[in-house]
Amino acid sequence: MLSPEEQREIEAELPHYPTKQAVSIDAMKIVQKHRGWVSDEALEDIGKFLGMSTSDLDGVATFYNLIFRKPVGRHVVYICDSVSCWIMGATSISDRLTARCGARLGESTADGRFTLLPIVCLGACDHAPVMMVDDDLHLDLEPAKAEDILDRYK
């Protein structure tokens, strides 16, 4: 079941578009904002709400990379792996963080605190290498600095 709040937020998007389907991505992101990810059940509920089949929605969900169809940790760490960051040492950042977290890219830490994900160019190439933790962009990283930053996210 969608929570009243989720429903309200989804409804608020409806007038912005001429079709209900257009809200599908927003709706999944809203649910994800509240629950961290979009489960099969959530997909079904959104589908009912928008008059779409679960297959319709899942076809959309699995196309995009910011919709999570598996549970994620409390904090999602997006490590830029695109070309400028790569030149500037992004690999050393992700090596350090995966070692420290005991999780590979695409995985979550055992304690459910972090999920580490590669992400394409975050548009901050003049400050490479960079990463984003939840909504915060962190610039000009070095391995040690990146590790320190993670410590701030409990």
Binding site: S53, S55, G59
Partner: peptide
């Protein structure tokens, strides 16, 4: 039909049902 779709992308596109 509505219970069949393409899923994912690149060289991993999957054609089937959501389950």
């Amino acid at each position: 039909g509505a219970d069949f779709n393409s899923f994912a992308l690149r060289n991993l596109v999957y054609f089937g049902r959501d389950k």
